[in-house]
Design a protein around this nucleic acid. Structure first.
Lengths: 130, 130
DNA sequence: CGGCCACAACTACTCCGGTAGTTAAGGAAA
DNA sequence: TTTCCTTAACTACCGGAGTAGTTGTGGCCG
């Protein structure tokens, strides 16, 4: 239940790559992050460090190591978002949404979609309160 | 226009304290963060480092320094939130809201409020599109 | 006047994310 | 078999956040 709050940029990117692949050798992760122009050994080192901390795990497949994430994406999201909300919005998620709306980050079509989602969530919440 | 994305935990807390006070001596910031059990010199050091980076500024008042934040809260929020959205939700803010809704972070009363806010934002957006 | 106190300045250290070179060992190719 | 390539292991280094002790200096209080 405890995904650490201190995920670096690269670490998160690596996790995302692993979430997408399920299981992947170092080379594949490296390829997925090609945009960053990092050395293969950098990725390997990072993966090893992350394994020490329990963020990922590996199994051997002949020559290669196959890595997989040990964290649930939803959990990581919850932690990171929760952290941000705590630090920036006094722990009130609604303030975050408010910020998004005010900052005009969401366009008209999306607003429409959002309204439906909210209504949905409302129904769900109402039902759950039984 | 460019608030850096790399704000540490303490730095953000300090900024928040300054935003609340407008202008404050080291001792006041220290007091505001008393919950963390930090030494006064720690706060002073941090403030000095932050000044080097242009995050805060000070003016002298007798022998004390009065610090103030040089960053607009809204801007910092925008940067940090934008960063998180980029790293975690492929740059789609709507996905963030979605996550919030699904994770049940927002209760029923708030959902109601949220729906109104969305409708408001929608009206605003529609008008602005002139 | 003399000592104490508040506060800024300087210095030092730890931890960790990020980055990568070098080395070693196993398999493949010539 | 000898060479080379792939890939994991080890080692090293930098920068920045965070933490705090020590020193110096001017003001205040007795």
């Amino acid at each position: 239940m405890k995904g650490p709050r201190n995920l670096g940029d690269l670490q998160l990117a690596i996790l995302r790559a692993l979430w997408d692949s399920g299981e992947a050798p170092v080379a594949a992760v490296h390829e997925a992050l090609r945009g960053r122009g990092l050395a293969l050994t950098t990725i390997a080192t990072m993966l090893r460090k992350m394994e020490e901390k329990g963020l990922v795990a590996h199994r051997e497949n002949g020559r290669q190591f196959l890595y997989r994430a040990r964290l649930d994406p939803a959990l990581v999201q919850k932690n990171l978002v929760g952290d941000l909300v705590a630090k920036l919005f006094d722990g009130d998620p609604l303030e975050l949404v408010n910020h998004l709306l005010r900052a005009g980050e969401i366009d008209l079509a999306e607003l429409d979609l959002l309204r439906q989602r909210v209504a949905e969530a409302e129904r769900r919440a109402r039902k759950e309160r039984a």
